[in-house]
Lab assay of single mutants.
Amino acid sequence: MPSETPQAEVGPTGCPHRSGPHSAKGSLEKGSPEDKEAKEPLWIRPDAPSRCTWQLGRPASESPHHHTAPAKSPKILPDILKKIGDTPMVRINKIGKKFGLKCELLAKCEFFNAGGSVKDRISLRMIEDAERDGTLKPGDTIIEPTSGNTGIGLALAAAVRGYRCIIVMPEKMSSEKVDVLRALGAEIVRTPTNARFDSPESHVGVAWRLKNEIPNSHILDQYRNASNPLAHYDTTADEILQQCDGKLDMLVASVGTGGTITGIARKLKEKCPGCRIIGVDPEGSILAEPEELNQTEQTTYEVEGIGYDFIPTVLDRTVVDKWFKSNDEEAFTFARMLIAQEGLLCGGSAGSTVAVAVKAAQELQEGQRCVVILPDSVRNYMTKFLSDRWMLQKGFLKEEDLTEKKPWWWHLRVQELGLSAPLTVLPTITCGHTIEILREKGFDQAPVVDEAGVILGMVTLGNMLSSLLAGKVQPSDQVGKVIYKQFKQIRLTDTLGRLSHILEMDHFALVV
Protein backbone atom coordinates (compact mmCIF):
# COMPACT_ATOMS: atom_id res chain seq x y z
CA MET A 1 0.00 0.00 0.00
CA PRO A 2 1.46 3.38 -0.95
CA SER A 3 2.14 6.01 1.69
CA GLU A 4 0.47 8.58 -0.54
CA THR A 5 -3.22 7.88 -0.95
CA PRO A 6 -4.36 7.56 -4.56
CA GLN A 7 -7.90 8.47 -5.51
CA ALA A 8 -9.95 5.39 -6.31
CA GLU A 9 -11.06 5.38 -9.92
CA VAL A 10 -14.78 5.39 -10.62
CA GLY A 11 -16.40 3.16 -13.21
CA PRO A 12 -19.03 4.43 -15.58
CA THR A 13 -22.09 2.52 -14.35
CA GLY A 14 -23.49 0.42 -11.52
CA CYS A 15 -23.14 0.57 -7.77
CA PRO A 16 -19.76 1.25 -6.14
CA HIS A 17 -20.21 -1.25 -3.36
CA ARG A 18 -20.43 -4.54 -5.20
CA SER A 19 -19.28 -7.42 -3.06
CA GLY A 20 -16.32 -9.40 -4.23
CA PRO A 21 -12.77 -8.55 -5.29
CA HIS A 22 -12.46 -4.92 -6.29
CA SER A 23 -11.00 -3.78 -9.54
CA ALA A 24 -9.33 -0.47 -10.12
CA LYS A 25 -12.79 0.76 -11.10
CA GLY A 26 -14.25 -0.27 -7.75
CA SER A 27 -16.59 -2.95 -9.13
CA LEU A 28 -16.46 -6.64 -9.98
CA GLU A 29 -13.79 -7.49 -12.50
CA LYS A 30 -13.97 -10.74 -14.44
CA GLY A 31 -11.16 -12.10 -16.56
CA SER A 32 -7.96 -14.08 -16.46
CA PRO A 33 -5.59 -14.07 -13.44
CA GLU A 34 -3.14 -12.12 -15.58
CA ASP A 35 -5.78 -9.45 -16.24
CA LYS A 36 -6.58 -9.21 -12.54
CA GLU A 37 -2.93 -8.96 -11.59
CA ALA A 38 -2.48 -6.14 -14.07
CA LYS A 39 -5.63 -4.23 -13.12
CA GLU A 40 -6.12 -4.80 -9.41
CA PRO A 41 -4.89 -1.86 -7.30
CA LEU A 42 -2.69 -2.01 -4.23
CA TRP A 43 -5.63 -0.77 -2.21
CA ILE A 44 -8.97 1.01 -2.50
CA ARG A 45 -9.87 3.95 -0.31
CA PRO A 46 -12.57 3.19 2.29
CA ASP A 47 -13.86 6.74 1.78
CA ALA A 48 -14.13 6.61 -2.03
CA PRO A 49 -17.06 8.68 -3.36
CA SER A 50 -20.30 6.73 -3.40
CA ARG A 51 -21.96 5.93 -6.71
CA CYS A 52 -25.08 4.49 -5.10
CA THR A 53 -28.21 5.13 -7.17
CA TRP A 54 -30.77 5.05 -4.32
CA GLN A 55 -33.18 7.97 -4.29
CA LEU A 56 -36.22 8.53 -2.12
CA GLY A 57 -39.29 7.68 -4.20
CA ARG A 58 -37.43 5.64 -6.81
CA PRO A 59 -39.17 2.30 -7.58
CA ALA A 60 -37.63 -0.73 -5.87
CA SER A 61 -37.69 -2.54 -9.21
CA GLU A 62 -34.89 -0.25 -10.42
CA SER A 63 -32.49 -1.39 -7.67
CA PRO A 64 -29.38 -3.13 -9.09
CA HIS A 65 -29.10 -5.31 -5.98
CA HIS A 66 -30.39 -8.69 -4.87
CA HIS A 67 -32.86 -8.13 -2.03
CA THR A 68 -33.98 -10.46 0.75
CA ALA A 69 -36.86 -10.38 3.21
CA PRO A 70 -36.88 -11.32 6.91
CA ALA A 71 -37.66 -15.03 7.22
CA LYS A 72 -39.44 -16.75 10.08
CA SER A 73 -37.10 -19.05 12.03
CA PRO A 74 -37.83 -22.79 12.09
CA LYS A 75 -38.19 -24.57 15.43
CA ILE A 76 -34.82 -26.26 14.92
CA LEU A 77 -32.15 -24.14 13.26
CA PRO A 78 -29.94 -25.85 10.63
CA ASP A 79 -26.92 -23.90 11.89
CA ILE A 80 -26.15 -20.92 14.12
CA LEU A 81 -26.17 -18.48 11.19
CA LYS A 82 -29.97 -18.75 11.18
CA LYS A 83 -29.91 -17.02 14.58
CA ILE A 84 -28.81 -13.78 12.93
CA GLY A 85 -31.62 -11.25 12.72
CA ASP A 86 -35.12 -11.21 14.22
CA THR A 87 -33.79 -9.47 17.35
CA PRO A 88 -36.21 -8.33 20.08
CA MET A 89 -37.63 -4.86 20.62
CA VAL A 90 -37.67 -4.07 24.35
CA ARG A 91 -39.30 -1.18 26.20
CA ILE A 92 -36.93 0.94 28.31
CA ASN A 93 -39.02 1.67 31.39
CA LYS A 94 -36.93 3.54 33.95
CA ILE A 95 -34.30 5.61 32.15
CA GLY A 96 -36.77 7.53 29.98
CA LYS A 97 -38.83 8.53 33.01
CA LYS A 98 -35.69 9.44 34.96
CA PHE A 99 -34.75 11.99 32.29
CA GLY A 100 -38.25 13.35 31.85
CA LEU A 101 -39.20 11.81 28.51
CA LYS A 102 -42.90 11.88 27.68
CA CYS A 103 -42.58 9.48 24.74
CA GLU A 104 -42.20 5.71 24.70
CA LEU A 105 -38.54 4.62 24.52
CA LEU A 106 -37.83 1.28 22.82
CA ALA A 107 -34.54 -0.60 22.32
CA LYS A 108 -33.74 -2.80 19.31
CA CYS A 109 -31.43 -5.30 21.04
CA GLU A 110 -28.89 -6.32 18.39
CA PHE A 111 -26.72 -8.14 20.93
CA PHE A 112 -29.18 -11.05 20.60
CA ASN A 113 -27.63 -11.93 17.24
CA ALA A 114 -25.59 -15.15 17.20
CA GLY A 115 -22.20 -13.42 17.42
CA GLY A 116 -23.39 -10.78 19.86
CA SER A 117 -23.69 -7.68 17.68
CA VAL A 118 -25.46 -5.86 14.87
CA LYS A 119 -22.43 -6.60 12.68
CA ASP A 120 -23.45 -10.26 12.39
CA ARG A 121 -26.09 -9.12 9.89
CA ILE A 122 -23.65 -7.48 7.48
CA SER A 123 -21.01 -10.19 7.91
CA LEU A 124 -23.38 -12.93 6.81
CA ARG A 125 -24.87 -10.78 4.05
CA MET A 126 -21.44 -9.88 2.60
CA ILE A 127 -20.42 -13.55 2.56
CA GLU A 128 -23.71 -14.74 1.05
CA ASP A 129 -23.61 -12.09 -1.68
CA ALA A 130 -19.96 -12.90 -2.45
CA GLU A 131 -20.82 -16.60 -2.69
CA ARG A 132 -23.82 -15.84 -4.89
CA ASP A 133 -21.78 -13.86 -7.44
CA GLY A 134 -18.96 -16.42 -7.47
CA THR A 135 -16.35 -14.30 -5.72
CA LEU A 136 -15.94 -16.49 -2.63
CA LYS A 137 -15.09 -20.12 -3.31
CA PRO A 138 -14.36 -23.06 -0.99
CA GLY A 139 -10.89 -22.75 0.53
CA ASP A 140 -10.63 -18.98 0.01
CA THR A 141 -9.41 -16.54 2.66
CA ILE A 142 -11.46 -13.66 4.10
CA ILE A 143 -9.49 -10.63 5.34
CA GLU A 144 -11.19 -7.68 7.02
CA PRO A 145 -10.07 -4.48 8.77
CA THR A 146 -12.47 -4.01 11.69
CA SER A 147 -12.94 -2.70 15.21
CA GLY A 148 -13.82 -6.26 16.19
CA ASN A 149 -17.56 -6.89 15.87
CA THR A 150 -17.55 -7.31 12.09
CA GLY A 151 -14.54 -9.58 12.58
CA ILE A 152 -16.46 -11.72 15.05
CA GLY A 153 -19.41 -11.94 12.66
CA LEU A 154 -17.14 -12.89 9.75
CA ALA A 155 -15.18 -15.39 11.86
CA LEU A 156 -18.44 -16.98 13.01
CA ALA A 157 -19.70 -17.34 9.45
CA ALA A 158 -16.27 -18.47 8.22
CA ALA A 159 -16.18 -21.19 10.89
CA VAL A 160 -19.55 -22.51 9.71
CA ARG A 161 -18.83 -22.09 5.99
CA GLY A 162 -15.23 -23.31 6.10
CA TYR A 163 -13.21 -20.24 5.10
CA ARG A 164 -9.88 -19.08 6.47
CA CYS A 165 -10.38 -15.75 8.26
CA ILE A 166 -7.80 -13.04 9.04
CA ILE A 167 -8.92 -10.05 11.12
CA VAL A 168 -6.89 -6.82 11.28
CA MET A 169 -7.83 -4.58 14.21
CA PRO A 170 -6.39 -1.60 16.13
CA GLU A 171 -4.65 -2.20 19.45
CA LYS A 172 -7.26 -0.26 21.46
CA MET A 173 -9.92 -2.91 20.88
CA SER A 174 -10.74 -5.09 23.86
CA SER A 175 -8.98 -8.32 24.77
CA GLU A 176 -12.39 -10.01 24.96
CA LYS A 177 -12.90 -9.44 21.23
CA VAL A 178 -9.48 -10.94 20.54
CA ASP A 179 -10.26 -14.00 22.69
CA VAL A 180 -13.58 -14.60 20.94
CA LEU A 181 -11.96 -14.23 17.51
CA ARG A 182 -9.24 -16.73 18.41
CA ALA A 183 -11.82 -19.17 19.76
CA LEU A 184 -13.64 -18.96 16.41
CA GLY A 185 -10.41 -19.86 14.62
CA ALA A 186 -9.59 -16.44 13.18
CA GLU A 187 -6.04 -15.21 12.77
CA ILE A 188 -5.51 -11.74 14.27
CA VAL A 189 -3.19 -8.90 13.31
CA ARG A 190 -3.04 -5.80 15.55
CA THR A 191 -2.20 -2.29 14.32
CA PRO A 192 -1.40 1.02 16.08
CA THR A 193 -4.53 2.78 17.32
CA ASN A 194 -3.25 6.23 16.37
CA ALA A 195 -2.37 5.32 12.75
CA ARG A 196 -4.38 7.32 10.20
CA PHE A 197 -6.70 5.22 8.06
CA ASP A 198 -4.62 5.99 4.93
CA SER A 199 -1.33 5.03 6.58
CA PRO A 200 0.34 1.74 5.56
CA GLU A 201 0.39 0.87 9.29
CA SER A 202 -3.38 1.31 9.78
CA HIS A 203 -5.78 -1.63 10.01
CA VAL A 204 -7.01 -0.74 6.52
CA GLY A 205 -3.48 -0.50 5.10
CA VAL A 206 -2.27 -3.74 6.68
CA ALA A 207 -5.37 -5.63 5.51
CA TRP A 208 -4.77 -4.58 1.90
CA ARG A 209 -1.09 -5.52 2.14
CA LEU A 210 -2.09 -9.00 3.33
CA LYS A 211 -4.64 -9.30 0.53
CA ASN A 212 -1.95 -8.50 -2.04
CA GLU A 213 0.32 -11.18 -0.54
CA ILE A 214 -2.13 -14.06 0.10
CA PRO A 215 -3.52 -15.98 -2.91
CA ASN A 216 -7.31 -16.34 -3.22
CA SER A 217 -7.93 -13.82 -0.47
CA HIS A 218 -10.70 -11.23 -0.39
CA ILE A 219 -11.45 -8.07 1.55
CA LEU A 220 -15.24 -7.91 1.65
CA ASP A 221 -14.76 -4.28 2.69
CA GLN A 222 -17.55 -3.22 5.02
CA TYR A 223 -16.66 0.43 4.34
CA ARG A 224 -17.60 0.18 0.64
CA ASN A 225 -19.72 -2.94 0.29
CA ALA A 226 -23.39 -2.36 -0.56
CA SER A 227 -24.24 -5.53 1.36
CA ASN A 228 -23.61 -3.52 4.54
CA PRO A 229 -26.50 -1.03 4.28
CA LEU A 230 -28.57 -3.54 2.28
CA ALA A 231 -28.58 -5.97 5.21
CA HIS A 232 -30.26 -3.31 7.33
CA TYR A 233 -32.51 -1.98 4.56
CA ASP A 234 -33.85 -5.48 3.87
CA THR A 235 -34.07 -6.93 7.40
CA THR A 236 -33.33 -4.65 10.36
CA ALA A 237 -35.57 -1.83 9.13
CA ASP A 238 -38.40 -4.21 8.21
CA GLU A 239 -38.20 -5.83 11.65
CA ILE A 240 -38.44 -2.41 13.31
CA LEU A 241 -41.47 -1.46 11.20
CA GLN A 242 -43.19 -4.77 11.96
CA GLN A 243 -42.44 -4.61 15.68
CA CYS A 244 -43.71 -1.02 15.88
CA ASP A 245 -46.69 -1.62 13.57
CA GLY A 246 -45.24 1.08 11.34
CA LYS A 247 -45.57 3.71 14.07
CA LEU A 248 -42.36 5.41 15.20
CA ASP A 249 -41.41 9.07 15.40
CA MET A 250 -37.66 8.96 15.98
CA LEU A 251 -34.80 6.52 15.48
CA VAL A 252 -31.43 7.03 17.20
CA ALA A 253 -28.34 5.09 16.10
CA SER A 254 -24.62 5.44 16.74
CA VAL A 255 -22.51 5.52 13.58
CA GLY A 256 -19.35 3.65 12.59
CA THR A 257 -19.19 2.47 8.99
CA GLY A 258 -22.63 4.02 8.60
CA GLY A 259 -24.25 0.91 7.16
CA THR A 260 -26.74 0.51 10.02
CA ILE A 261 -28.11 4.05 9.99
CA THR A 262 -28.02 4.30 6.18
CA GLY A 263 -29.93 1.08 5.54
CA ILE A 264 -32.51 1.60 8.28
CA ALA A 265 -33.01 5.30 7.54
CA ARG A 266 -33.55 4.79 3.81
CA LYS A 267 -36.32 2.24 4.46
CA LEU A 268 -37.91 4.40 7.15
CA LYS A 269 -37.85 7.45 4.86
CA GLU A 270 -39.80 5.36 2.35
CA LYS A 271 -42.27 3.73 4.73
CA CYS A 272 -42.49 6.17 7.64
CA PRO A 273 -41.49 9.59 6.25
CA GLY A 274 -42.31 11.51 9.42
CA CYS A 275 -39.72 9.60 11.48
CA ARG A 276 -36.71 11.72 12.45
CA ILE A 277 -33.30 10.03 12.10
CA ILE A 278 -30.71 10.95 14.75
CA GLY A 279 -27.02 10.09 14.26
CA VAL A 280 -24.61 9.67 17.18
CA ASP A 281 -20.90 10.35 16.66
CA PRO A 282 -18.22 10.29 19.42
CA GLU A 283 -16.09 13.34 20.17
CA GLY A 284 -12.84 12.90 18.25
CA SER A 285 -14.60 11.49 15.17
CA ILE A 286 -15.49 13.46 12.03
CA LEU A 287 -18.70 11.78 10.84
CA ALA A 288 -21.20 14.35 12.12
CA GLU A 289 -22.62 17.30 10.22
CA PRO A 290 -22.38 20.27 10.20
CA GLU A 291 -18.58 20.17 10.31
CA GLU A 292 -18.49 22.59 13.28
CA LEU A 293 -19.77 19.77 15.51
CA ASN A 294 -16.50 17.90 14.96
CA GLN A 295 -14.22 20.73 16.10
CA THR A 296 -12.40 19.50 19.20
CA GLU A 297 -8.88 19.06 20.51
CA GLN A 298 -9.72 15.46 21.38
CA THR A 299 -8.40 12.94 18.88
CA THR A 300 -8.91 9.64 20.73
CA TYR A 301 -11.83 8.03 22.54
CA GLU A 302 -12.38 4.82 24.48
CA VAL A 303 -15.80 3.77 23.18
CA GLU A 304 -15.39 1.10 20.50
CA GLY A 305 -17.06 0.42 17.18
CA ILE A 306 -18.28 3.93 16.34
CA GLY A 307 -16.67 7.03 14.85
CA TYR A 308 -13.89 7.34 12.25
CA ASP A 309 -11.32 9.78 10.93
CA PHE A 310 -12.76 9.39 7.41
CA ILE A 311 -16.24 9.23 5.87
CA PRO A 312 -16.95 5.61 4.82
CA THR A 313 -18.34 5.17 1.33
CA VAL A 314 -21.50 3.40 2.55
CA LEU A 315 -22.49 6.23 4.92
CA ASP A 316 -25.28 8.34 3.42
CA ARG A 317 -25.39 11.41 5.64
CA THR A 318 -28.28 12.92 3.65
CA VAL A 319 -30.76 10.60 5.41
CA VAL A 320 -29.71 11.77 8.89
CA ASP A 321 -31.91 14.63 10.11
CA LYS A 322 -29.73 15.68 13.04
CA TRP A 323 -26.37 14.72 14.53
CA PHE A 324 -25.32 14.69 18.18
CA LYS A 325 -21.82 14.23 19.59
CA SER A 326 -21.27 11.91 22.55
CA ASN A 327 -18.39 11.53 25.00
CA ASP A 328 -16.86 8.54 26.75
CA GLU A 329 -18.05 9.40 30.25
CA GLU A 330 -21.73 9.60 29.33
CA ALA A 331 -21.41 6.55 27.05
CA PHE A 332 -20.12 4.29 29.81
CA THR A 333 -22.34 5.82 32.49
CA PHE A 334 -25.46 5.15 30.41
CA ALA A 335 -24.26 1.66 29.41
CA ARG A 336 -23.86 0.76 33.09
CA MET A 337 -27.27 2.33 33.75
CA LEU A 338 -28.88 0.19 31.04
CA ILE A 339 -27.39 -2.90 32.65
CA ALA A 340 -28.21 -2.01 36.27
CA GLN A 341 -31.67 -0.49 35.78
CA GLU A 342 -33.06 -2.19 32.67
CA GLY A 343 -31.17 -5.51 32.68
CA LEU A 344 -29.91 -4.89 29.14
CA LEU A 345 -26.41 -6.38 28.89
CA CYS A 346 -25.16 -3.99 26.20
CA GLY A 347 -21.85 -2.39 25.22
CA GLY A 348 -20.50 1.14 25.43
CA SER A 349 -21.82 2.39 22.08
CA ALA A 350 -25.33 1.53 23.28
CA GLY A 351 -24.68 3.92 26.15
CA SER A 352 -23.74 6.63 23.64
CA THR A 353 -26.98 6.04 21.77
CA VAL A 354 -29.24 6.22 24.82
CA ALA A 355 -27.36 9.23 26.24
CA VAL A 356 -28.22 11.08 23.03
CA ALA A 357 -31.75 9.66 22.84
CA VAL A 358 -32.78 11.16 26.20
CA LYS A 359 -31.71 14.56 24.82
CA ALA A 360 -33.09 14.27 21.30
CA ALA A 361 -36.42 12.75 22.36
CA GLN A 362 -37.24 15.65 24.68
CA GLU A 363 -39.11 17.13 21.70
CA LEU A 364 -41.45 14.11 21.47
CA GLN A 365 -44.81 14.07 23.20
CA GLU A 366 -46.90 11.47 24.98
CA GLY A 367 -48.09 8.84 22.54
CA GLN A 368 -45.00 9.18 20.35
CA ARG A 369 -42.23 6.62 20.08
CA CYS A 370 -38.42 6.67 19.93
CA VAL A 371 -36.42 3.58 18.93
CA VAL A 372 -32.73 3.23 19.82
CA ILE A 373 -30.31 0.68 18.35
CA LEU A 374 -28.22 -1.18 20.94
CA PRO A 375 -25.37 -2.54 18.77
CA ASP A 376 -23.48 -5.07 20.88
CA SER A 377 -23.08 -7.00 24.11
CA VAL A 378 -21.22 -6.29 27.34
CA ARG A 379 -19.38 -9.58 26.70
CA ASN A 380 -16.79 -7.60 24.72
CA TYR A 381 -16.00 -5.20 27.57
CA MET A 382 -15.80 -7.21 30.80
CA THR A 383 -12.35 -5.82 31.60
CA LYS A 384 -13.24 -2.32 30.40
CA PHE A 385 -16.24 -0.19 31.38
CA LEU A 386 -17.83 -3.02 33.37
CA SER A 387 -14.80 -2.88 35.69
CA ASP A 388 -14.85 -0.24 38.45
CA ARG A 389 -11.06 -0.22 38.43
CA TRP A 390 -10.90 0.52 34.71
CA MET A 391 -13.48 3.27 35.10
CA LEU A 392 -11.47 4.80 37.95
CA GLN A 393 -8.21 4.60 36.06
CA LYS A 394 -9.74 6.32 33.03
CA GLY A 395 -11.32 9.02 35.18
CA PHE A 396 -14.95 8.02 34.50
CA LEU A 397 -15.57 7.16 38.17
CA LYS A 398 -14.46 8.90 41.36
CA GLU A 399 -13.16 7.19 44.48
CA GLU A 400 -16.14 8.42 46.48
CA ASP A 401 -18.46 6.60 44.06
CA LEU A 402 -17.23 3.28 45.49
CA THR A 403 -18.03 2.01 48.96
CA GLU A 404 -15.64 -0.94 49.40
CA LYS A 405 -13.18 -0.75 52.30
CA LYS A 406 -9.77 0.64 51.37
CA PRO A 407 -6.31 -0.01 52.95
CA TRP A 408 -4.82 2.58 55.32
CA TRP A 409 -2.57 4.13 52.67
CA TRP A 410 -5.30 4.54 50.02
CA HIS A 411 -5.89 8.28 50.46
CA LEU A 412 -2.25 9.28 50.97
CA ARG A 413 -0.74 11.50 48.27
CA VAL A 414 1.94 10.31 45.87
CA GLN A 415 4.20 13.13 47.08
CA GLU A 416 4.40 11.41 50.48
CA LEU A 417 6.46 8.64 48.88
CA GLY A 418 9.41 11.06 48.70
CA LEU A 419 10.29 10.08 45.13
CA SER A 420 13.53 11.33 43.60
CA ALA A 421 13.89 12.59 40.02
CA PRO A 422 14.17 9.62 37.63
CA LEU A 423 16.97 8.75 35.27
CA THR A 424 16.15 10.10 31.79
CA VAL A 425 17.68 9.47 28.37
CA LEU A 426 17.74 11.47 25.14
CA PRO A 427 16.09 9.95 22.05
CA THR A 428 19.34 10.26 20.09
CA ILE A 429 21.48 7.91 22.17
CA THR A 430 21.82 4.34 20.94
CA CYS A 431 19.93 1.30 22.15
CA GLY A 432 23.21 -0.34 23.15
CA HIS A 433 24.26 2.64 25.28
CA THR A 434 20.80 2.85 26.89
CA ILE A 435 20.94 -0.83 27.88
CA GLU A 436 24.36 -0.25 29.47
CA ILE A 437 23.03 2.74 31.44
CA LEU A 438 19.95 0.91 32.71
CA ARG A 439 21.96 -2.13 33.79
CA GLU A 440 24.58 0.04 35.48
CA LYS A 441 21.95 2.00 37.43
CA GLY A 442 19.78 -1.05 38.16
CA PHE A 443 16.68 0.32 36.40
CA ASP A 444 14.19 -1.53 34.19
CA GLN A 445 12.87 1.55 32.40
CA ALA A 446 13.48 5.26 31.91
CA PRO A 447 11.61 8.25 30.46
CA VAL A 448 12.84 9.52 27.10
CA VAL A 449 12.96 13.33 27.02
CA ASP A 450 14.15 15.83 24.45
CA GLU A 451 16.69 18.56 25.17
CA ALA A 452 13.90 20.88 26.35
CA GLY A 453 12.78 18.30 28.91
CA VAL A 454 9.56 17.35 27.10
CA ILE A 455 8.59 13.73 27.76
CA LEU A 456 8.49 11.75 24.51
CA GLY A 457 7.74 8.34 25.96
CA MET A 458 9.21 5.47 27.96
CA VAL A 459 11.83 2.90 27.12
CA THR A 460 12.08 -0.45 28.90
CA LEU A 461 14.97 -2.86 29.15
CA GLY A 462 12.75 -5.83 28.28
CA ASN A 463 11.34 -4.24 25.14
CA MET A 464 14.78 -3.20 23.89
CA LEU A 465 16.25 -6.66 24.43
CA SER A 466 13.34 -8.41 22.71
CA SER A 467 13.51 -5.96 19.78
CA LEU A 468 17.23 -6.63 19.42
CA LEU A 469 16.75 -10.40 19.54
CA ALA A 470 13.96 -10.19 16.95
CA GLY A 471 16.18 -8.12 14.66
CA LYS A 472 13.78 -5.17 14.67
CA VAL A 473 16.56 -2.80 15.79
CA GLN A 474 20.34 -2.85 16.02
CA PRO A 475 22.46 -1.77 19.04
CA SER A 476 23.58 1.24 16.99
CA ASP A 477 20.00 2.42 16.34
CA GLN A 478 18.67 5.39 18.27
CA VAL A 479 16.56 4.55 21.30
CA GLY A 480 13.77 6.67 19.85
CA LYS A 481 12.86 3.67 17.67
CA VAL A 482 11.74 1.56 20.64
CA ILE A 483 9.94 4.02 22.92
CA TYR A 484 6.44 3.51 24.27
CA LYS A 485 4.52 6.63 23.28
CA GLN A 486 1.43 5.68 25.27
CA PHE A 487 1.91 5.73 29.01
CA LYS A 488 -0.02 6.71 32.11
CA GLN A 489 0.79 9.92 33.97
CA ILE A 490 0.03 10.70 37.58
CA ARG A 491 0.49 13.87 39.63
CA LEU A 492 2.15 14.26 43.02
CA THR A 493 -1.21 15.37 44.40
CA ASP A 494 -3.01 12.20 43.25
CA THR A 495 -3.74 9.47 45.77
CA LEU A 496 -1.90 6.19 46.14
CA GLY A 497 -5.26 4.55 45.50
CA ARG A 498 -5.35 6.02 42.00
CA LEU A 499 -1.72 4.95 41.46
CA SER A 500 -2.66 1.45 42.64
CA HIS A 501 -5.41 1.19 40.02
CA ILE A 502 -3.01 2.29 37.27
CA LEU A 503 -0.35 -0.24 38.28
CA GLU A 504 -2.92 -3.05 38.27
CA MET A 505 -3.29 -2.52 34.51
CA ASP A 506 0.07 -1.04 33.48
CA HIS A 507 3.67 -1.89 34.31
CA PHE A 508 4.59 1.68 35.23
CA ALA A 509 3.28 5.22 35.62
CA LEU A 510 5.13 8.48 35.16
CA VAL A 511 4.87 11.02 37.99
CA VAL A 512 4.70 14.54 36.52
Rank of each mutant, 00 (worst) to 15 (best):
A237C: 12
D129T: 08
A231E: 02
E213D: 12
T13V: 09
C52L: 03
A48C: 13
P170Q: 02
A159K: 06
L268V: 07
K177E: 04
C109K: 01
P78D: 09
V255H: 02
G162R: 06
I95E: 00
D245Q: 12
R132W: 05
K97M: 07
G256K: 01
K267G: 12
C103S: 06
L156N: 00
Q7D: 08
G11N: 10
K108T: 01
A60W: 11
N194D: 13
F99R: 07
P145K: 04
E239K: 09
P78N: 09
D221F: 09
R266E: 07
K269L: 04
K137N: 12
L154F: 05
P170C: 00
G134F: 06
M250I: 09
V168N: 04
K247S: 01
N113C: 10
I167W: 07
I127R: 01
A183Y: 04
G20I: 15
P12H: 12
P41F: 04
A114S: 14
R91E: 09
R58H: 13
S217N: 06
P200R: 14
K177R: 02
Y233M: 00
V255C: 12
R190F: 00
D245V: 08
A157R: 03
S117V: 04
R125V: 02
Q243D: 12
E213F: 11
Y163W: 00
F197D: 07
V178H: 02
P70K: 10
L28M: 13
Q242E: 15
T87I: 12
I80N: 07
M173Y: 07
E34L: 01
S175T: 12
D120M: 05
P2W: 12
H22V: 13
S199E: 05
I44G: 02
A159R: 13
A253E: 08
T5K: 08
S61G: 02
L28T: 10
S61H: 01
P41D: 04
G96N: 11
F99G: 15
K39T: 10
G205C: 09
G263I: 00
D245L: 02
G57H: 08
E239W: 05
P88S: 12
K102E: 08
P46K: 02
V252D: 09
N93T: 08
K97A: 02
D198F: 06
H65C: 00
S123V: 04
V204D: 07
P273Y: 01
A38P: 10
M126G: 04
R276M: 10
A155V: 06
P70N: 10
E104H: 05
G96P: 09
H66D: 10
L241N: 03
A48P: 10
V90A: 04
I214V: 06
G100Y: 01
C15Y: 11
I214C: 05
L220K: 00
L248D: 01
R224A: 12
D133N: 13
D79H: 10
P12Q: 10
S32I: 07
N149V: 00
D140A: 09
M250Q: 01
F112P: 05
E34T: 10
T13G: 10
D234Y: 13
N194M: 08
D234C: 01
Q222C: 00
L101W: 04
I95P: 00
G148V: 04
E128H: 03
P49V: 11
S254P: 15
K98S: 15
P70L: 10
I122Y: 01
R224L: 04
P229R: 05
W208V: 09
G11R: 13
I240E: 00
A8R: 14
V206M: 14
D238F: 10
P192C: 08
V10Q: 07
K25C: 15
A38L: 13
A265H: 06
G11E: 10
I261D: 01
P6N: 09
R266P: 03
P74S: 12
L220H: 00
L124R: 06
P2Y: 08
K271V: 11
S123E: 08
D47S: 07
D245P: 09
R161Q: 10
K211L: 09
I84Q: 07
V168R: 04
V204K: 07
N228M: 03
M173H: 06
P64M: 11
T135H: 11
A8F: 08
I143G: 03
P273G: 09
H65T: 01
A186K: 01
Q7C: 13
A159M: 06
G274Y: 11
P16M: 09
P46H: 05
R91G: 15
G259M: 00
R58P: 11
P70C: 11
P273T: 04
M250F: 05
T53F: 04
S217D: 01
P33H: 08
K94W: 13
